[in-house]
C-alpha cells in the first residue's frame, strides 16, 4: 500500500492532465485551474523543506564554528530580513521589499552573471584549440557569432582598411545565417530528441514503470 497509493495518485492525476488538454469543456478547464493551484500549494510546502535545509546547513556551520562561519550569519540575517519586510509590509513597488529587490538582489544577480563573462572567455582561451574538424567548426561558429554581435571589433582589429570595412559590413549577416540555418538544424535535432524523451519519460512515470522519485523514504516499505 505504501507504494500502490502513490502510484495510483500519479496515474490518475497524470491521466487526467493528459486527457484534459483534448477536452475543452469548462468542467475540465475548472479542474485544470484547481489542480494548478493545488500544485502551487504543495510547492509552497516543498519550498519550506528546501529553505529549512538551507537554514539548517548555515545554522550548523555557525554552531560548530566551521570555516567561514561568520558569513553564514549574513545569509541567515539577509533571509530573515527579507521575509520580515516582505511578509510584514508588502511586496508591491514602493515598499521596502521592492527597494531591496531592486537595489540589492537585481544588482547582485546581474553582477554575478556578468562575472561569468571573464571566466567563460578565459576558459575558452585556454581550451579552444582547432585540433579536429569538429573542434574547428565549433571554434569558427563561436568566433563568427561573437564578432557578428560586435562588428566594430573588426575595425579595431584590422584598422581602417578595405578588409576591415568588408568584414565589418558582412560579419553580422554571416553570423545571422549561422544562427538561422546550421544552428537551427542542430538544435532542431536536439529538440526532437528532448520532446520524444520527455513524452517517453512522462509515460513511464504515469504508468508506474519509472518510480525512482518515490524511493526517498528510508522507512517506507514496499
Amino acid at each position: 500500500m505504501r507504494l500502490q497509493i502513490p502510484l495510483a495518485i500519479t496515474f490518475l492525476i497524470g491521466l487526467f492532465m493528459a486527457v484534459q488538454f483534448f477536452v475543452p469543456h469548462e468542467v475540465f478547464q475548472y479542474s485544470f485551474e484547481s489542480l494548478l493551484a493545488w500544485v502551487r500549494i504543495v510547492g509552497a510546502f516543498a519550498l519550506v523543506l528546501g529553505i529549512g535545509s538551507l537554514l539548517r546547513t548555515h545554522w550548523d556551520k555557525i554552531r560548530r564554528r566551521r570555516r567561514d562561519w561568520p558569513y553564514s550569519i549574513v545569509t541567515i540575517v539577509s533571509f530573515l530580513a527579507m521575509c520580515v519586510i516582505g511578509i510584514g509590509f508588502g511586496h508591491e513597488p514602493g515598499t521596502v521589499f521592492y527597494w531591496v529587490f531592486e537595489n540589492i538582489q537585481v544588482p547582485l544577480d546581474a553582477t554575478m552573471f556578468s562575472l561569468l563573462a571573464f571566466f567563460i572567455a578565459s576558459a575558452a582561451f585556454r581550451t579552444f584549440r582547432a585540433r579536429s574538424t569538429e573542434a574547428t567548426l565549433l571554434l569558427v561558429a563561436a568566433v563568427v557569432v561573437m564578432l557578428g554581435r560586435v562588428p566594430s571589433a573588426l575595425i579595431v582589429s584590422f584598422g581602417d582598411t578595405a578588409v576591415g570595412h568588408y568584414l565589418h559590413a558582412n560579419m553580422p549577416d554571416v553570423s545571422e545565417w549561422i544562427m538561422n540555418f546550421p544552428t537551427v538544424a542542430g538544435k532542431r535535432g536536439i529538440i526532437f530528441g528532448v520532446a520524444l524523451g520527455a513524452i517517453a519519460t512522462a509515460l513511464r512515470v504515469i504508468l508506474g514503470i519509472e518510480r525512482s522519485h518515490l524511493g526517498g523514504g528510508g522507512g517506507g516499505g514496499q
Binding site: T10, L12, G14, M17, A18, G43, L203, V205, G216
Partner: peptide
C-alpha cells in the same frame, strides 16, 4: 511520497 506522486503525476500528464 503522496505529495511527490501528485506533483509528478501533474507534471508528467502536462508534459505529454
Amino acid at each position: 511520497r503522496w505529495p511527490i506522486a501528485f506533483v509528478m503525476g501533474y507534471s508528467s500528464g502536462l508534459a505529454i
